[in-house]
Structure formats: C-alpha cells, structure tokens
Design a protein around this nucleic acid. Structure first.
Length: 617
DNA sequence: GGAAATTCAA
C-alpha cells in the first residue's frame, strides 16, 4: 500500500528535515546507511541503542524520545519504530502511527517484521482496521503477533461474525489469540460464552492457558456468581502452577467475594505473601464491604496504613462505602478528612456520593444536604439516588419528592428514579402522584427491568423471572413454593404488601405477586435440588425487596440453610433467621452494636474455607 | 526477543 502522505511527525521540523537528508536519494539507490562511513554508522547505531533503551524504560515518553533521536541525527532502527508505534497504540494515536508509517516507508524500514507488527497493532487498536489489514496483507504471513494484532482489531471493531471468521481461519492460534476472544466475550457481557471458549481452548490442546486467560475466565465466573466453577478455576491455577501475581490475586479475591464466599477471599488474600499491591488490598476491602463486613473492612484499612501502603482513590471509595453500609458516621467523616489532608487526594463525585449516602442512611439529612451544597461539581444520579432511597426508608416524603424529581432529571432513562419516586408517593398514599410518575415514565418510553434471580446447580445456571413457569421442573418448584408459604405462615410471617406499590386494593393479588418474586422461585428450586444443610447461593439483578428480605430470613431458619443472595448492590447472608446486612438497608437502627454483624460471624481464614476441588468445569 | 491479552469503585 502507499504509505500515508502525512509529511511530518510530532514537531514538524524533525521528520521533514530527516527525510530531506541529502545523503538519502530516492530508489533505486541503495539505502543511505550503506553510503555512510563506517564510524558514522557505528555512532548512529550506538546513539539509537541508547535511545531505544530509554524508550523501553519510559514507554510513556517513547514518542518524545523518538523525536529526540531524529533530532540527534541518528537513524532509527526497527526497534525504535516498534517502540514508538507501541506508544501510539497505547495512546490510541492514529495520526502519530500514520506519520511513523510514512517515515519508516521513506527509510525503507516499513517492511521490517517488527515495524509491520507495530503498525498492524497500532492501526487495529485505533480503529483503522482497513489500514491494519493492508499492512498485514503485504506483510509476514504466519507471524503470530501480526495475526493476533489483527484479531485484536476485529475484536475492537465489534463485528462478531468477522471476528469469529478471522479467528477460525487463523493459521496458528496461540494463547494470546484465545485470550483475545475470551476477553472480548467478558467485555461484551457474554460470560457463559467466555467460559465456553475457555473449554474449547482446553479441548483444542493448541496451547496452554496462562494467567491472563485465568483472569478473564475468573472474571466471567464472577459476573455469573458461579462459585463451583470459581473453585475449579482456582484449583486449576494451583494445579498448573500459574503464577498468582497482583492481577490474578485481585481477580480471585473478587471472585470469592462476589460469589458470597468471603472466607475464600480472605484465604487467598492472607496467603499471598509478597504478591500484593494497592489493588489487591482494594479488592479485599471491597469484598468485606459488599459482604456486609464493614468492621472488617475498617480493620483491614487500618492494617493497610500500618504496612505503609499508600491508599488511592479507589481505596477511599471502598472504605467510605464500608462506613456508610456499616453506619460508621464518625469514622466516615474521619476518613474523608484524612483522604484530603493526609493523602492529598481530591475527592471526586464518587467520594461525595459515599458521604451523602453515609449521612442519608443515618437519617442525618441536614448533613447530607450540606454535603451536596459544598460539592464543587453538579450532583449526579447516584447522589440523588442515595438521598431518595434514604428518604423512602426514613419516610421523609417532602425531601424525597424533591430529590426524586432531581433524580429523574439527572437520569431520565433509568427506570430506578421513576420507581423510587413513585414508591415515595405510594408510601405517602398519594396515588395521583404515583400515576403522574408512571405516565411520565411511559411517555418517555422508559422500561422497567424485570427482576431475575439465578442459581447454579451442578455447574448449570438456572435463571428465574417473577412468576416464571418455563423451568422443566416447574411442578416441583411450585409445590415447594407453596410448602414454603405454609411454613412461613406457621412461623408467623405476614406478607409486607407495602412493597407491592401498585394501586391495587386486593390484598390477595398483592400477596400472590410477592410470593412469586424471582428469588423465592430460585430458593424453592435450590431447596429441592441440593442436599439438606447445603448453602443456597442466589444472584439477583435488582435489589431484594423488603418483603423477600423478611421471608428469606425466616426461610433460612425454617430450613436450616444459609442462603446467600447477591443483589445489584451487595450480598445478604441469611443465617438462622437474620441477615449479615443487619437490615441496615431497610431500617437504620442507629447504633453500631445493633448491627447483626459481629466479628465472630465469619470463621477464621481457613477454618471453613472449602479447599479448591478438582470438579469438572 | 518483543508484543499481544487482564482486576479493584456509589
């Protein structure tokens, strides 16, 4: 292909001057280097080597160093081009890549294998798939890097069919090729597909998975909440001796945390040794927070500070979140201050959001409003959502209405705002308000996401929506469900129909719609499909409603099961009639002691931690 | 021999 005609690179003078060097006549004369005296050639090579060494050490400065290299009068070699192109790829700088292409072509370097690979990669990640393809087509067939770089381009372009076709037609697929596909699946929410591709990878025997493969696969498993598969993946890592460096350990900690198995996360974390960085600590902090172990999170944060590790924005985001979920108002305020004063971290909108949430949950609406006023930026939907949610809990209808309207203005396409606002009106008995909000939602074409819950049985994910009758075992499930309802009534459970915020008077209809919530169906299926005493793990796409929360607490006691529900925000560990969240999200009790979480709730690091088992994926 | 692929947050 003809190289792009951009005449200069970075500073316009350097490339133009370099290209116009008198000792560089056009083809068919031999390359200029061969005409230089030997000493000059050696000097240029040394200078170039010194620059490429610096480019390797400071990849961020690669383009600038390349520029300096040209200014010094030395000739860039293929390594210098490749390193500069690598920087273009990372910075998604297509223009600079095209300039380098043009420059290399003039110097006769554009056909070098490494330069070609650099060009393909840079063009591919910058979205110039056609340019990447052109370089590829006239380049080195069979070079794995070239194939993988182009594959990456197809993945970035998002055309699944083209991606699949290219992948299938690849001459030699290696670990990177498979990793690219698996990562693409995860990025695009195709988690089951990611695991299926991983299985194919193993079956193909073409190459071995590495730690990058496992990070992606474990991430897919995390999204699915599939603990059994997570245990398998962890066992695979151990068995194959795959190095558990910072990223893989974060992924594992995250997997165990998000599968509701905090003991597993702690086990991984405590056995890491030197392979730890801020991200690992953040993952563990987030794990404690999501599982309702706020005190543990704060203890860990204190430990982190003692070890001398410097916390970052994410650390504080997580810690503030822990404070807010645990009702630690004082501690949260202290952390917020330390973040700015000790660590010099400028709070971003997320941190302000956490603080508003912290005050709101504690019912300190004055402080929350003050925080909103002092924010240097415009409050976003999350801030309003925290305020509206708390107003609903604390039945502060006036403020709730105002904040609710702000929320639907800040996020007009999110159904959550409309639902929350209509809930506020409904709790206030203002049905006119409810209808107005519903009409607004309808007029704007905003759809409510249907609630769904899933449960993994023997490695298979079963998903239920409210009132679902599509499952093959539906008779057994509904029989179990009616038994559950009877047992609940015996235990003194009264359906809390205030959670059915429909303008209907018939309590029976309200009751039956509650009884068919997706999590109850999933629990019914879990009870008939697992051995007595086995924990039941449910993943739900929305938040658990207050009625289900009450019902599941009782069910955990009636059936002697630990029921772990992952909802859109956090985990609920139901055990013997109570929940690890301490009902905090529904009714804030105000005092730390009354939180259902005690430090003895979780077993020590490895006492009840299930050792990785080599079951089939 | 290098490059390519990756986690944590309301």
């Amino acid at each position: 292909m003809p190289p792009p005609t951009v005449p200069f690179f970075l500073t316009s003078t350097t490339l133009a001057a370099a290209a116009a060097k008198p000792q560089r006549p056009g083809p068919p004369s031999p390359p200029a280097q061969q005409q230089q005296p030997r000493e000059a050639r050696d000097g240029s090579r040394d200078a170039c080597a010194s620059y490429t060494a610096r480019m390797r050490l400071n990849p961020q400065l690669a383009l600038r160093l390349f520029d300096h290299l040209l200014r010094s009068g030395a000739d860039p070699d293929h390594v210098a081009y490749a390193l500069a192109l690598g920087r273009c790829a990372r910075g998604r700088d297509r223009r600079a890549a095209a300039q380098l292409h043009s420059h290399a072509a003039k110097r006769g370097a554009a056909s070098h294998r490494r330069v070609c690979n650099g060009l393909i990669h840079a063009y591919a990640v910058c979205g110039s798939l056609l340019d990447a393809r052109k370089v590829f087509d006239r380049g080195h067939e069979g070079d794995a890097v070239a194939w993988n770089s182009l594959l990456r381009g197809y993945a970035a372009a998002g055309d699944v069919n083209a991606l699949r076709e290219f992948f299938v037609g690849m001459q030699a697929r290696d670990t990177v090729s498979w990793n690219t596909i698996i990562a693409w699946c995860v990025e695009n929410g195709e988690y089951e597909e990611a695991i299926a591709v991983f299985r194919e990878m193993l079956a193909s025997m073409e190459c071995l998975p590495d730690r990058v493969t496992l990070v992606s696969v474990i991430s897919a498993i995390t999204y699915l909440g599939a603990l059994a598969q997570g245990l398998w993946a962890h066992a695979y890592v151990c068995r194959k001796g795959i190095e558990v460096e910072e990223r893989l350990s974060s992924a594992l900690i995250n997997m165990y945390s998000k599968c509701g198995c905090i003991e597993g996360a702690v086990h991984v974390f405590e056995n890491l040794g030197a392979q730890m960085n801020v991200d690992t600590w953040n993952a563990m902090l987030a794990g404690f927070t999501a599982n309702g172990c706020s005190e543990k999170a704060l203890e860990l944060f204190a430990r982190m500070e003692i070890t001398g590790l410097v916390p970052n924005k994410i650390t504080f985001n997580t810690v503030l979140n822990a404070c807010s979920h645990g009702g630690f108002v004082e501690e949260g305020m202290g952390c917020f201050e330390r973040m700015t004063k000790v660590y010099g971290i400028e709070p971003d909108i997320a941190h302000y959001g956490c603080m508003v949430d912290l005050f709101c949950r504690a019912g300190l609406f004055d402080k929350a409003e003050k925080m909103i006023q002092m924010m240097p930026m415009k409050p976003d939907a999350a801030v309003w959502k925290a305020l509206v949610g708390a107003c609903k809990t604390h039945r502060n209808f006036e403020l709730g209405r105002k904040a609710g309207h702000m929320l639907i203005e800040a996020a007009p396409n999110d159904h959550a705002g409309y639902v929350l606002l209509s809930n506020i009106y409904a709790l206030d008995g203002n049905w006119t308000g409810v209808h107005k909000v519903r009409k607004l939602m309808l007029d704007r074409g905003v759809q409510k996401v249907p609630g769904s819950s899933s449960i993994e049985i023997d490695g298979v994910i079963h998903e239920f929506i409210s009132g679902d009758k599509s499952h093959s075992s539906k008779e057994d499930i509904y029989e179990m469900l009616s038994e559950m309802c009877q047992q609940l009534k015996v235990a003194g459970y009264v359906p809390d129909t205030s959670h059915v915020l429909l303008d209907i008077d018939d309590e029976d209809v309200k009751e039956s719609s509650l009884a068919l919530h997706s999590e109850k169906l999933a629990i019914a299926f879990g009870l008939i499909s697992t051995a007595p005493g086995t924990p039941i793990r449910i993943a739900k796409n929305l938040r658990v409603c207050g009625d289900c929360h009450n019902a599941v607490k009782l069910l955990s006691k009636i059936y002697g099961r630990c029921i772990i529900v992952r909802d859109a925000n956090r985990f609920h560990h139901f055990r013997e009639g109570s929940c690890s969240c301490g009902d905090f999200w529904t009714v804030y009790s105000g005092s730390r002691e009354s939180s259902a979480l005690t430090s003895t709730r979780w077993p020590a690091a490895d006492s009840s931690y299930p050792a990785p088992v080599d079951n089939k994926l």
